[in-house]
Amino acid sequence: MRRQLRRWVVALLAVCCVAALVIVLSPWPLQRVSGGVTYHAIAALHERGVPSQVDYGLMEFLANIALFVPLGALGVVVLGPRRWWAVLAVSAALSITVELVQAVALPHRTASGWDVLANTVGAAVGLGLVAAVRRARSRRGRTASEISGSPVA
C-alpha cells in the first residue's frame, strides 16, 4: 500500500477506535443518553408489523456488531491479509478490556459476554468484507488479463 494511503487508513482506524471507546466507555448507557429514541424506534417498527423478537436486546447486539466492523476491516488493511488472526485477537482483547472496565469502573453500565461475542463477530465481518473485495478485484484483474491475452478466433 502506498505510504500516503497507509497513513490515511491508519488515521481512520485511530478515529474509529477512539469513537468506539467513547461510545462503550461513556459513563451512561446509550439508551439513557438518547432519551429513549431507540425504544420509540422499536415500538414504531412493531406497529408496522416487525416481529416482537426485534427488541432492544437484538438491536444492541446488532449495534455492537456494527461498531467493530470498521475496526476489523481497517485493521486487516493496515496489517495485511496474512495477519487476519491478529486483527481478530486484538479486537476480542479490546472488547474484553472494555467489558472489564465497564464491570469495575462504570456502575451505570452493564458488562456482558454477549457484547464481547458481538464485537468479535463485527470484527470478523469487517475482515470478511475486505477479503471479499480483494477476491472480487483479483478475479476482475484475472478476467481482464485472460480476455486480453487470449487469441481471437
Score class of each variant (00 low, 15 high):
residue 2 R to G: 14
residue 2 R to M: 10
residue 4 Q to V: 11
residue 5 L to G: 10
residue 5 L to S: 12
residue 5 L to T: 14
residue 6 R to N: 04
residue 7 R to I: 06
residue 8 W to R: 14
residue 10 V to T: 12
residue 10 V to A: 10
residue 12 L to R: 01
residue 17 C to E: 01
residue 17 C to P: 01
residue 19 A to K: 02
residue 21 L to T: 09
residue 22 V to I: 11
residue 26 S to P: 00
residue 26 S to R: 11
residue 28 W to R: 15
residue 28 W to I: 09
residue 31 Q to K: 12
residue 31 Q to P: 05
residue 33 V to T: 08
residue 33 V to A: 04
residue 36 G to K: 06
residue 36 G to S: 04
residue 37 V to A: 15
residue 37 V to I: 14
residue 39 Y to K: 15
residue 41 A to Q: 07
residue 42 I to L: 12
residue 43 A to P: 06
residue 43 A to M: 08
residue 46 H to G: 05
residue 47 E to R: 15
residue 47 E to F: 06
residue 47 E to H: 12
residue 47 E to I: 00
residue 48 R to Y: 03
residue 50 V to E: 02
residue 51 P to H: 06
residue 53 Q to N: 10
residue 54 V to K: 07
residue 57 G to M: 10
residue 57 G to A: 14
residue 59 M to L: 15
residue 62 L to V: 13
residue 70 P to T: 04
residue 74 L to R: 01
residue 76 V to K: 00
residue 76 V to C: 05
residue 78 V to W: 03
residue 78 V to E: 01
residue 81 P to S: 14
residue 82 R to P: 02
residue 84 W to R: 03
residue 88 L to R: 01
residue 90 V to A: 11
residue 91 S to F: 02
residue 92 A to R: 07
residue 96 I to H: 02
residue 96 I to R: 02
residue 98 V to T: 09
residue 98 V to E: 03
residue 98 V to S: 00
residue 99 E to G: 06
residue 100 L to F: 13
residue 101 V to L: 10
residue 108 H to N: 13
residue 109 R to K: 10
residue 110 T to F: 09
residue 111 A to L: 09
residue 114 W to L: 15
residue 114 W to I: 15
residue 115 D to H: 05
residue 116 V to C: 00
residue 117 L to C: 07
residue 117 L to V: 15
residue 120 T to W: 04
residue 122 G to I: 00
residue 126 G to T: 09
residue 127 L to D: 00
residue 127 L to Q: 05
residue 128 G to E: 01
residue 128 G to S: 04
residue 129 L to P: 06
residue 132 A to P: 09
residue 134 R to F: 08
residue 136 A to T: 09
residue 142 R to W: 13
residue 143 T to W: 15
residue 143 T to N: 13
residue 145 S to W: 13
residue 146 E to I: 12
residue 147 I to E: 15
residue 149 G to I: 07
residue 149 G to V: 08
residue 149 G to S: 14
residue 153 A to I: 14
